[in-house]
């Protein structure tokens, strides 16, 4: 399961992917979600006194997919042939595996 991580700018590392837009106090977007963190981006954000970032966790995609399947099996272990819960499970998989988010 992917959950974004909020961290101090000082803890951000090159190669991480931004999970949310970075905005300044006036609401102006400084860096968009999905952008890969670089040294120059970190430098720019430091200058603009940004203190916190939300990034995607660094994970192995196939291990994550397997973990998601295992967790779904557990959570839906009593759903059996219930059509409503089958619909919910399909929707959840679509959401979790969906590609239109930064992470």
């Amino acid at each position: 399961m992917t959950k974004s991580i909020e961290l101090d700018l000082a803890a951000a590392q090159v190669g991480m992917v931004l999970a949310h837009d970075v905005v300044n106090a006036t609401g102006q977007t400084l860096a968009a979600a999905g952008m890969v963190v670089t040294e120059s981006l970190l430098e720019g954000l430091r200058k603009r006194e940004i203190e916190r970032l939300t990034v995607c966790p660094l994970v192995d995609a196939s291990a994550e997919a397997a973990a998601l399947t295992e967790r779904l099996e557990y959570l839906f272990r009593k759903a059996e042939a219930d059509p409503i819960r089958a619909t919910l499970r399909r929707a959840l998989e679509q959401y979790r595996r969906g590609g239109n988010r930064a992470c």
Partner: peptide, 11 residues
């Protein structure tokens, strides 16, 4: 916990 049964009328 597990995903519990859903009341069809509520759904």
């Amino acid at each position: 916990s597990f995903v519990p049964p859903v009341d069809p009328a509520s759904w």
